[in-house]
Design a protein around this nucleic acid. Structure first.
Length: 115
DNA sequence: ATTCTGACAGCAA
DNA sequence: TTTGCTGCCAGAA
């Protein structure tokens, strides 16, 4: 029958959610890595946008494990309190200093490689 | 329909 | 090195 024309579901957004949920505990990834894995390369902004509306998704999205390519917690202000994201990451064993992840490459989880 | 913005990334000056 | 612009795609006003 007619295709289920769902507004924003089962496309870029859902993929981002799936990948993000696949990020292991204590690991992190970057917007660009996810975007590249999805095949859009430079559409990293969409990844951030997807996570922004991740609240639409009923499941918990470990968006705190997604940071920019510098390992900087750019979206920490979207977690309610500026320290929430940082706290969550440190809770998982991630060391954060000055809003930046230490041992970023060490904790980095690339979907293009791991998946 | 047009315009602006957005949790980024890359490159130029 | 830092700062700023551009490109990417989608959604909101």
């Amino acid at each position: 029958m007619s295709r289920p024309k769902l507004k924003s579901d089962n496309d870029f957004f859902t993929k981002v959610y799936e990948v993000t949920k696949c990020v292991p505990y204590g690991r992190i990834t970057s917007y660009g890595a996810i975007a590249r894995y999805l095949g859009s390369g430079r559409s990293a902004r969409m990844v951030g946008w997807a996570l922004n509306v991740s609240h639409n998704n009923m499941e918990f999205i470990p968006a705190h494990r997604v940071v920019n390519r510098n390992g900087l917690l750019t979206g920490k202000y979207h977690f309610g309190n500026s320290t929430t994201m940082e706290q969550l990451l440190q809770n998982e064993g991630i060391i954060i200093e000055n809003d930046r992840i230490m041992n970023f490459e060490e904790k980095f989880w690339d979907p293009a490689i791991e998946l």
